[in-house]
């Protein structure tokens, strides 16, 4: 028996918005410690890694490990039926071919149940290597989304350049060039407004604008985003999911730009 109940059900709705444009289908690995999802996007250009720890759920039970292959378009349709303040429970029998979503209104006056067919997905087992990153940049997630959106008007690529002074985002195209520099912030009232650069070596890498913009669909999950870069390895874009876990996107640098 698997059962995971989340009072803050809106988090699950936001997680779905953050992955549904990148993945058509994915396997949810449910284990005693929590739920993991790891999958390459539809074009195999980026990797999505989602981690939801059992401690983040209000009730979590997983008697034996199960892998639930889900069609994310269908799952997204179902989660759209939940209100933002609904409590969401996912449950499945050990060897079931369906998963049930239960939405409870906060006053328990309305309870909706949706059953969805599971899929057998033959997905590659991928490992994420431990990497020491030369630059780790934390910035407000809304700011990052704005920069990606603004620069996508100029070209298909964004150059991210990190030095000890701060981080520079640039794009160039037919209409001209754009450069946005963010300096490290001094003292800020709210931690989430800070720009923090932790740099061992300066790094400059080029990434696809389209994918960075897709990653920013996770912005509602967290006020801060963390970018980790090293030469010749994929960029990591990480959003925390409340106290429950995180979503990480990995994107290979563009070659030959």
């Amino acid at each position: 028996m698997f059962e995971a109940r989340l009072v803050q059900g809106s988090l699950l709705k936001k997680v779905m918005e953050a992955i549904k444009d990148l993945l058509n289908e994915a396997s949810f690995d449910c284990a005693h410690s929590g739920i993991l999802l790891q999958a390459m996007d539809n074009s195999h250009v980026s990797l999505v890694s989602l981690n939801l720890r059992k401690e983040g759920f209000d009730k979590y039970r997983c008697d034996r490990n199960i892998v639930m292959g889900m069609n994310l378009t269908s799952m997204s349709k179902i989660l759209k039926c939940a209100s933002n303040d609904d409590i969401i429970t996912m449950k499945a029998q050990d060897s079931a071919d369906t998963v049930t979503f239960v939405f409870e209104s906060p006053n328990q006056e309305k309870v909706s149940e949706y059953e969805m067919k599971l899929m057998n997905l033959d997905q590659d087992q991928l490992g994420i290597p431990e990497t020491e990153y030369c630059c780790i940049i934390k910035l407000p997630s809304g700011e990052f989304a704005r920069i990606c959106r603004d620069l996508s008007q100029f070209g298909e690529s964004i150059v991210i350049s990190c030095t000890k002074e701060g981080v520079k985002f640039s794009a160039a195209g037919d209409i001209g060039t754009a450069n946005i520099k963010l300096a490290q912030t001094g003292t800020v009232d709210k931690e989430e407004d800070a720009v923090i650069v932790d740099m061992q070596e300066p790094v400059t890498l080029t990434f696809s604008c389209k994918y960075l913009n897709m990653f920013t669909k996770a912005t509602p999950l967290s006020p801060q985003v963390c970018l980790s870069m090293s030469p010749d390895v994929p960029l990591v874009v990480e959003y925390k999911i409340g106290e429950i876990g995180h979503i990480r996107y990995y994107l290979a640098p563009r070659i030959g730009d």
Binding site: V45, S46, L47, P129, P234, L251, P253, R254, I255
Partner: peptide, 14 residues
Amino acid sequence: NTEQEELEEYFKDS
């Protein structure tokens, strides 16, 4: 696509 290959290699090597 070289970026695809790079990414797949990075995750498969581990």
